[in-house]
Amino acid sequence: MMNRLDGQEVQKYLSALEARLSHLPADQSEEILFGVQEHISEDLSRGNRPVSEVLASLGNPDDVLADMAGPDSSRSSGDGRAPTAPRWRSTSPWVALTAVLLVIGGFLAGIGWFAGVACLWMGTRWKTWEKILGTCLFPGGVLGALYFARLIPWSVDPILGTTSSGPAEPVIPGLPLVATILIMCIPLIMAGYLMVAGLLRRPRPAKAPSTAPPSMLHN
């Protein structure tokens, strides 16, 4: 399917749609995006219409979201429909707070990192796989990484020939220090990625309905 979606015009359209969907929970936006991808791929495979016509028939990305502001939006979650996450969970300060807590939250009475994970999973600007990675890399943040680095057997006991993390000779001089720094960089890099990805997915202000074909979005 993907080879039919590689065209620049299609990629621009899907990127624009993904950005418009960013205020939705990740599972919802992924489902919608996947449906549209499938639609484009299947329509192109039938060979009846050129790419520009297929994209024009889908409507511009703002039109695709028109249904989200339709009859459903005025109903409460009490009718069995999925509730929408509170707006504050998709704000930029929420993104920044999450990233900071994931990195140094371990130093805040040991519970700050758990608060960061809770913020991450309640947030609406990350995809599910990003939330999983953010949780796993690294439990406890920098503190957790430091603890993990201490557990690794960096040295060999000169008498017994066994590895240990104690003060015996390192296998490679300087390795423990370098490796510890590298391991501590993992939560920093992960939090940095989550921060950038979250901030880039800032919801855009609602636009007036437009009838412009998608190709006009790329000008």
Binding site: E31, E42, M68
Partner: peptide, 26 residues
């Protein structure tokens, strides 16, 4: 999905076929 979109479009019930997918997800 595409056949639903084409069917609705053919009946004049769907002007932008992309709007079908948020609806199907809902």
């Amino acid at each position: 999905g595409l056949d639903i979109a084409n069917g609705l479009h053919g009946q004049g019930l769907l002007t932008s076929e992309g709007t079908l997918y948020p609806l199907l997800a809902r």
